[in-house]
């Protein structure tokens, strides 16, 4: 179920007169490896990288291919649909909907497919909330701690059992115990479901556990432990 990812000649510039290149990836390939951790200094382009492979830019220079088909060749409607079906994403700042309840936030992705939320999805959301010690009652999103929000965002990313999980600093706001629990959970789910798990993290614990590492600096890959890149990079 895991997917191959190939990036070719990806270049993302900021808009404006003195538009700068914030991400420049001539080639990158993930072929059969299920886990990847991306690290780098703040502002090095990690989030931008995730957005690019999530198909969140309306358009960009280069190719981002999942299972050999270029995401950016799809019409944006199709790309939205692709995201809905293939992606579980945890945003760096969670991007929860303050207007909704905790449970509804977790259930948002399931509401796209049918008008009424299926019963089993509600059950699943409650189970996820329980696993991540999220209290689904009497709490408003806006009043929650970053750690709580992070876990809700995580539950939302997992609700549809998507084959690709992109997690932007999923443990950054958590205490050590919670961080360990969540990392374990993520890895377990991705292993059991044969998912592709890409995590952006500074967390040494994360770095330690995941073998495949990508290091970004000023929008460029400066270190890649994956075997494929060196071949192509040399070519």
């Amino acid at each position: 179920m895991s997917k191959s990812l190939e990036i070719q000649n990806l270049k993302i510039n900021t808009f404006g007169i003195n538009g700068q290149t914030i991400l420049d990836v001539p080639y990158f390939n993930l072929e059969g490896e299920r886990e990847l951790v991306i690290s780098g200094a703040s502002g090095s382009g990690k989030t931008t990288f995730l957005y690019a492979i999530a198909g969140l830019f309306l358009k960009l220079n280069g190719k981002v291919s999942w299972n050999r088909s270029n995401l950016y060749n799809l019409a944006s409607v199709e790309r939205d649909k692709w995201r809905s079906q293939n992606l579980g994403m945890i945003f760096q700042n969670f991007q929860l909907l303050d207007e909704l309840s905790v449970l509804d936030n977790i259930l948002v992705p399931t509401g796209f497919d049918s008008f009424f939320c299926p019963k089993d999805m509600i059950y699943k959301a409650e189970k996820l909330a329980d696993e991540f010690s999220i209290s689904i009652h009497n709490s408003t999103i806006a009043h929650m701690s970053r750690g709580e929000k992070q876990r809700i965002a995580l539950a939302r990313a997992l609700i549809k059992d998507a084959p690709i999980i992109l997690a932007d600093e999923p443990t950054a706001s958590l205490d050590e115990a919670n961080a360990r629990n969540i990392l374990e959970h993520l890895r377990k789910i991705s292993e059991e479901g044969d998912k592709t798990l890409i995590i952006v993290s500074h967390d040494p614990a994360v770095m330690e556990q995941i073998d495949n590492k990508l290091l970004l600096e000023h929008g460029k890959i400066i270190k890649n432990t994956l075997p494929t890149i060196s071949n192509v990079g040399a070519a």
Partner: peptide
């Protein structure tokens, strides 16, 4: 607009 962007990022259909 951010809320709608979140929905779009999560893959909400256009009609939705």
């Amino acid at each position: 607009s951010r809320q709608f962007a979140i929905l779009r990022a999560l893959g909400a259909p256009r009609l939705y």
